[in-house]
Design a binder for these strands. Structure first.
Lengths: 154, 154
DNA sequence: CGGAAATAGTCAGTGTGCTGATGAAATCTC
DNA sequence: GAGATTTCATCAGCACACTGACTATTTCCG
């Protein structure tokens, strides 16, 4: 008695969704490169030369996790990591040629995987689905970092 | 160039949602008991005497993870774990009195937390949000275990 | 009954994800 | 310019989460 229906708990559903995604990713995208690794690679293709802090901001990972993921990617020679000569604290990251190749290949496969994952939803529902999750996640992230509101000027 | 917009990737959004949830859980529900631990406890309050496999089925965790989580809960004396005398392979689990107390307390707090997490959505959107995630997760889980469809007869 | 197959649990190994402590480098301030 | 503060990275420690290998027990079947 007094037990709760977990299907009304967004946290539980989020975990299930992630599991489902993880499963499909392994089956349809890659067994070697994980989805967070792809996200990091993707951020560095968009902005080569970013440091770890910058990557973490873009893909929403904390410092420690970024260091781990970057470590794995550099070990596989998908990333180059060099000390910033201008600022000895920073490690500048950029994708290798191989990293760009892998990224290109996985991008295509990830698109196919997303199709399968979202197959149960009608077209209009898909956009809605994505925007609802994003609104909830955005709001919660804003709770964490107080302000930083509105558009950041150049 | 050729970088992807991760906000169109449900997997990435799922991870961000989970992170947001994790954060709020820590702040508003408990720093000691995690959300998966609560889920396991909840399953055993609904059905005391379940074995680990049964728990894993209910909360969607694999055998190894269930063993980990159950280990932590028994170490904290929130769960009792005894060998099934009828079937020596099984470990029968049931919540302790303390486990029930903790569960009751966290249930109230989790409800408050869910309110905050879903605050950015209007009432109708919340139900929609939950049902969309559930449909996607359900469908993906069905991909994993072929059949097992329809109602399982008594 | 007795061997083969199925089932429950454990263990080792890997990867994500967090916090908190530490160290190194840059910047700010007096 | 020297000391305090901030910033970037690393490390240890914990918790989830999966796979694959292994053990113990039970069940199934000849």
């Amino acid at each position: 008695m007094a037990a709760v229906d977990l299907s009304t708990h967004p946290g539980h559903l989020a975990r299930r969704l992630q599991q489902a995604h993880h499963l499909l990713w392994n089956a349809m995208v890659s067994e070697e490169i994980t989805s967070p690794q792809f996200a990091v690679l993707n951020a560095l293709i968009a902005e080569p030369g970013l440091d770890q802090r910058g990557v973490g901001e873009r893909v929403r990972l904390d410092r420690s996790t970024v260091a781990d993921v970057v470590g794995r990617l550099t070990r596989r020679d998908l990333l180059d990591k060099v000390r910033d000569p201008q600022d000895g604290r920073r490690a500048l990251l950029r994708p290798t040629a191989e990293g760009r190749r892998v990224h290109r290949r996985l991008t295509v496969r990830a698109a196919r995987m997303n199709e399968v994952l979202l197959a149960p939803l009608a077209d209009e529902e898909r956009a809605l689905f994505l925007s609802l999750i994003q609104r909830v996640a955005d709001a919660a992230e804003r709770l964490r970092d107080p302000l930083a509101e509105t558009v950041t000027p150049s």
